[in-house]
Design a protein around this nucleic acid. Structure first.
Length: 578
RNA sequence: UGGGGUGUCGCCAAGCGGUAAGGCACAAGGUUUUGAUCCUUGCAUACGUUGGUUCGAAUCCAGCCACCCCAGCCA
């Protein structure tokens, strides 16, 4: 799908708002802490689809690097093959590109570093800083202690270096079953930080890996892998979310206990003149949005149980879903920038996201008219067979977007909501005997209301004031303007009206037993009897503002040349709430 | 009752000892052939709380309170 043109492209450097990460980097640059370099990375695990929360991290990492003449790597943190797949790496790459970012060089994988990781593990063993443990997972949990009680040393903690080397080699060779042994760091079983109680570095998993196939049957853990991968890639600022804060001491412990020269030797900058400086981790608060569930587990479950129609369901907070819904890359980037970066866990109001899309779409979306709930209007003083091609601007403020022709015929459709027999106070649309402007065309007067036997309004007979094209009528003021389409020369289309998926602010709150109880029954309303002006059929653009209704985009999947399907991205702001 | 964090307007968020930026939302005007956009105006004597230091504190210190994260061989 093509997105609204102009600034969708340049996702790089912008005048960013002040935040603590930018401050830190400015200071580090000033003090030449990392040799004046800025190198970041976005490290997703390919175990699901990216969502708007990931977008915040992507924007942060890529933007902050670009602003400072640095680079951002894309590295798949693929150390748990049981949960990962190629499908996810493909979608993640696609989403990042769509968002408008280009990673530095080739895509990286932690699995690229499995050999080096193994060698460093041997190094730790040789330094007496790691050992092979035979405790089962359950036993290990028991030995670990609790939040308030210290743990106990593993009976294998003092195993000899030679035995550890032997066992670790045999783990790699596939001699042992899953779970029989693990490699653990020897740190401190009494540490108040549970991550430091001899964390597991390697576990045995006889399972193929999406990148390395059957080469390995032992896989390194996140804590062990991430810091070394950062060091290998010469990352300067390893930015992650708050829940990893307690892992930082371990991140540092591993790096500081490895021989720095051997680390440097396998790093990207091994042959450069740069000083070799270890990466440092900094944490920020992840994005939370009200009326939205963000957890991968929850999203996955909604997909699998059919609450939504897939990862790219337009109601999903996934980038794939938002893209299909009609969000533009720029709108998401602007949103992420406007939300800021801090360490306080906050819940952003959905209205901020809505503002960001409207802002971008208002500027770039072509205007068109589409009648969602048609009510036939006969323009009685126009001859049947009358076809008048009216020229209208595609954008009220941007002539460069050109013009289009909209046919006016004797019979037209207007929206049922734009006619009221007994209008409420302040109603500015069509009423019996009243006048209203047809957008881009004439002022009409409602002369007659035709009803069915049941009393339902069937059609309206109106007369056109031929002297009102491009000018106001003499001597009276017509306040209302409504949209319309030709009954004969318009395209029947389907329209999907989307709204928030949940009707409570915190669908993932513990107070809610089952999120299914707070699903918004109107999150999707499908209309099959809509009519859009013919110009959209041969338009190259995919995003439109259907005047007075909202922003819509052509559904990239279900649309056919015979029948277009539109998704409502977001309504227009509406200060006329009925 | 262990450790690590966070508390500035309804929601985000600047501020880093010199007397509370900005955005969203909201409200009131103006423009308008979209009740849209755009424009103008308003919107925290107040920075979780209590004390202390200081000529001066949201900013420094101490205590207290609230909330979040950690006991995966997940990331």
């Amino acid at each position: 799908m093509s997105d609204t043109k102009p600034d969708s492209k340049d996702a790089s450097a912008s005048t960013g708002a002040s935040n603590f990460i930018r401050h830190m980097i400015a200071q580090d640059l000033a003090s030449s802490k990392h040799g004046g370099r800025v190198q970041t990375r976005f490290p997703p695990e390919p175990n699901g689809y990216l969502h708007i929360g990931h977008a915040k991290s992507i924007c942060l990492n890529f933007t902050v690097a670009a602003e400072n003449g640095g680079h951002c790597n894309l590295r798949f943190d693929d150390t748990n093959p049981a949960k990962e797949s190629q499908e996810f790496v493909d979608s993640i790459k696609d989403n990042i590109t769509w968002l408008g970012f280009q990673w530095h060089g080739d895509v990286r994988y932690s699995s690229n570093y499995f050999d080096a990781l193994f060698d460093f593990a041997v190094q730790l063993i040789n330094k007496g800083l790691a050992y092979v443990c035979s405790l089962s997972a359950d036993e290990a949990r028991e030995y670990r202690g609790t939040l308030t009680a210290p743990g106990r040393n593993s009976p294998d903690r003092e195993r000899s270096i030679a035995d550890n080397i032997d066992l670790f080699s045999r783990m790699r060779a596939g001699e042992f079953a899953d779970g029989t042994y693990s490699l653990r760091a020897k740190i401190d079983m009494a540490s108040p930080n549970i991550n430091m109680r001899d964390p597991v570095l390697y576990r045995i998993r006889h399972i193929d890996h999406h990148q390395t196939g059957s080469t390995w049957c032992i896989y390194p853990t996140y804590d062990y892998t991430h810091c070394i991968s950062d060091a290998i890639e010469n990352i300067t600022h390893s930015i992650c979310t708050l829940e990893f804060e307690d892992h930082r001491p371990l991140y540092d412990w591993i790096l500081h206990n490895l021989d720095i020269d051997s680390l440097r030797a396998v790093s990207d900058l091994a042959d450069s003149d740069y000083d070799y400086v270890l990466p440092e981790q900094t944490e920020f608060a992840k994005l939370k949005l009200n009326y939205t569930m963000m957890g991968k587990r929850n999203l996955k479950e909604m997909v699998e149980t059919g609450v939504v129609q897939g990862w790219d369901d337009p109601r999903m907070p996934t980038l794939a879903g938002m893209r299909r819904r009609g969000f533009t890359p720029a709108s998401i980037r602007n949103f992420c920038e406007s939300v800021g970066v801090s360490r306080s866990e906050s819940v952003v109001d959905l209205s901020m996201l809505e503002h960001a899309v409207r802002e971008d779409l208002d500027k770039h979306a072509a205007r068109a008219m589409c009648v969602l709930n048609p009510l036939k209007v006969v323009l009685t003083n126009l001859p049947s067979g009358h076809v008048e091609r009216l020229s209208m601007a595609n954008h009220p403020k941007d002539e460069s977007m050109g013009r289009r022709e909209v046919p006016l015929t004797q019979e037209i459709f207007i929206d049922r909501a734009d006619f009221e027999e007994s209008p409420p106070e302040g109603f500015k649309r069509l009423v019996p005997g009243g006048e209203v402007r047809l957008r881009g065309a004439y002022v009409i007067r409602c002369d007659e209301v035709i009803k069915s036997s049941s009393g339902k309004v069937q059609e309206l007979h109106c007369s056109v004031d031929r002297d009102t094209l491009g000018k106001n009528p003499e001597g009276r003021k017509v306040k209302g303007v409504i949209h319309w389409v030709s009954a004969e020369l318009s395209l029947p289309v389907s329209v999907r009206l989307y709204d928030r998926l949940f009707n409570v602010e915190k669908p993932d709150s513990k107070d809610i037993e089952d999120y299914r109880t707070c699903l918004n029954p109107d999150s999707l309303v499908e209309l099959y009897d809509c009519f859009v002006e013919p110009s959209v059929a041969d338009s190259a653009v995919r995003h439109f503002q259907f005047e007075r209704e909202g922003y819509f985009c052509v559904d990239a999947i279900d649309s056919t040349p015979e029948r277009l399907v539109f998704n409502r991205t977001i309504t227009l702001r509406d200060s006329w709430s009925v």
